[in-house]
Amino acid sequence: MEAEFHTVSEIVQHDSRPKATGIEDLAFGSLAGMMGKCVEYPFDTVKVRLQTSETQVFSGTLDCLKQTWRNEGFGGFYRGLTSPLVGAMAENAIAFYAYNRIQGIIRTATGARPEDSLSLPQLFLSGGLSGTICAFVISPVELVKCKLQVENVQGYGGPANPAAVKFKGPLSVVSHLLRTQGLTGLYKGITPTVARETIGVGFWFGAYELVCRQLVRASQNSAKPLRSKADLGPAGIILAGGCAGISYNLASYPIDVVKSFIQTADVRSAGSSLTAAAEKPGIAGTIRIVYGRGGIPAFYRGLGITLLRAFPANAAMFMTYEYLSRLAAELHKK
């Protein structure tokens, strides 16, 4: 060990594993996104409903769970899954692809070797830029998802009103938006989405890399010290992936609340106390509306269940990506 590496820092920063190709990043990221979305989606449905509903609809997370189950059954937690499932596959494919390609650009610009890991600020920057790119892919997907997740809630606690449900599925939402608002209608809420993804994905990748490096450093005093992130076992990846998911949400959650509120304003206005002018709120207007519903805590409504699902969902994503990458690396050696 000492013949190859001289310092703990060098051990942590050196990774001789063959880098995944662009096609592999896209494929592995896609599968990772699918795995994570299946784990997290029921939690996400509750989160969006808590973020966007009037306070009298749900008293809290448990009440939202009970009402969703009573009114819609198990399928209610997966309402609108098709669109975000495809979106999650596309988002994570692009995220991992862009993240690794941007790192390559930074290495070239700084003269670093291909096998050397970048500094944490450089990794945060790589993650943030990849998030900016992803935002333009996932914004229409999240718009469709949020509308489908929220529209049924308008009938809770009152007589059934079939006319209140306008959409039969993702294609119905897309068709309606294109017919009534044109292509720009699919990008409602794009500004907060870009802000959320730039900040959130920067913390997502940055936290993952930070925890991995800390685990590698901590192993240097053990009987079997690790050489790099590639040597981490399942427990280490689960911990790092879970921390990445929590970091993403803690860093970007208030922005996500504003984004969800903007994207569902027209759906929530049907049969509610919202005025016609409130159907198209801007960012500043939305912030005022959310604040008026409960002050600063209103920007964190639904955070508990979001953090609860963030750990297992993101652990599943990074586990999937990491082990597929390791398998590919072994195949490249043969």
Rank of each mutant, 00 (worst) to 15 (best):
V267R: 07
T180F: 14
L62C: 10
G282S: 13
R17N: 09
D266L: 10
V165D: 09
P234N: 09
S83C: 15
A88M: 07
C64P: 06
L331R: 15
Y321S: 05
K224N: 14
K334E: 12
V201L: 08
F74K: 15
F203M: 02
L143N: 14
H14F: 10
M317Y: 07
I296A: 14
I102P: 00
T264V: 05
S9W: 05
Q263Y: 01
K19H: 11
L65P: 08
T184P: 10
D116Y: 06
H332Y: 09
H14P: 04
A270T: 10
K166F: 12
L171V: 14
P121G: 04
S130C: 03
T52A: 06
P84H: 08
I305D: 01
L307I: 02
S260P: 04
L215P: 07
D15V: 05
P114I: 04
G294I: 08
D63S: 05
D63N: 08
F58P: 03
A90G: 14
M1K: 13
S175K: 14
L120K: 05
G75Y: 07
T108I: 13
R268A: 05
W69G: 12
E142N: 15
L85N: 10
A310T: 00
G236K: 06
W69I: 11
P114S: 06
K333M: 13
E54P: 08
P234F: 12
G304L: 11
A329T: 07
L183T: 13
I105D: 07
A278Q: 14
Y97N: 01
A160S: 14
L274D: 11
N249G: 01
M35N: 13
L250V: 04
S273V: 09
E4T: 14
L81Q: 15
